[in-house]
Write a protein that binds this DNA or RNA. Sequence first.
DNA 1: TTTTAAATCGAACGATCGATATGTAAATTT
DNA 2: AAATTTACATATCGATCGTTCGATTTAAAA
Lengths: 201, 201
Amino acid sequence: MAEHLKNKEKLVTVAIELFSTRGFKGTSIRDIANAMDMSISNIYHYFGNKEGLLLAVLEHASKGLVEKLGEIPQMDLDPLERFKLLIRTHIQLSEFYKKEIKIFFLDEEHLSPEGIKINNQTQTDILQIHLKALNDLKKAGYLQCKSATIAAFNILGIINWQLRWYRTDGSLTLEDVSREIVSFILHGILGSNPPGIESDS
Amino acid sequence: MAEHLKNKEKLVTVAIELFSTRGFKGTSIRDIANAMDMSISNIYHYFGNKEGLLLAVLEHASKGLVEKLGEIPQMDLDPLERFKLLIRTHIQLSEFYKKEIKIFFLDEEHLSPEGIKINNQTQTDILQIHLKALNDLKKAGYLQCKSATIAAFNILGIINWQLRWYRTDGSLTLEDVSREIVSFILHGILGSNPPGIESDS
DNA sequence: TTTTAAATCGAACGATCGATATGTAAATTT
DNA sequence: AAATTTACATATCGATCGTTCGATTTAAAA
């Protein structure tokens, strides 16, 4: 039962695969139809037009990451521990939703108003999650940055960039990278006890 | 004199403008020809095919940033000051070469082997510049990170991400952001004298 | 001045694109 | 079982794509 829904979902999955590797403009409806072993017109039956498919992809892509990430700030933990957990989870989820996230960053430009809306909402949601974590740190007296917003952007930059350079087949495990990134975000490059910085030189 | 070279250069400039806003696949040769008020075939006379134009764009784009950024590590300064200068300069240059950099990150996927080569070389060059600065910091006893490479990637992530979220018409000046980013990179979010971190809890 | 080369154009080519019209088989509802 | 909706296919349309083919004008060299 519900075999048809399966195909619709599979269509979104295949579209994510192709959009993420070839881009939106670089992937034709025919490419997707061939990869699905399905007729072109059937895709139009499901999603109306190519952009409808992209919107379905964007919505599907935003759900998983935002929902799972949104659970972290509600956990009853020490602010600092919760913050560390947020970073580690975000890195793990990014690896899991690699292709989906790529689409968000790949075809930002030629997007319909509705697509832009979904895109902005997703990015805002994620930013707010990190901002809340940072503000909790501030209340607890940890945060030393002037602007929590810039700090949040910096954190997102680090995490999203890791998505570009990290290779699973390399020498570093994702846990190694995750630990190092958490340490970087907490202490920067000078460490928590830098030499000759706080002295009177 | 040399009126023909002018047009060839202008062609690259217009291509950068269009590629950066609509993407490579999203920009047709006709779009560029129309924007230049020039015939289509003339573009082929200059660059052979569409990809030749993209290669010219990539080469033009990589030159400016890498060359100017490469001057910093050779300066005779205190390692820490030189590092700060590198970050600040990189941020300023990123704003200046915004469109060019966008192309490097936009159409990474559907790129020819030669295009990939240029892309990789450029990214490697920039990474090496930052790695050198970090190693100089290490020699001087400043750097506390385990992996200078990951730190370099994190720095690139922060800078390149700033390119996405910073708006010139916002309330923050680029200098404000630059200062805050330098501080973040140096001290992280906990600051140089974080409370209760080094204690025995 | 003649010759050569570079710059430019208009017109067209085959391929591919997104999209549609029209049909049929299968599933669901009544 | 009949009616209706959903899931698919074939064939095709007009538009646009990258590219090419001469032809022409302009600039440089001889």
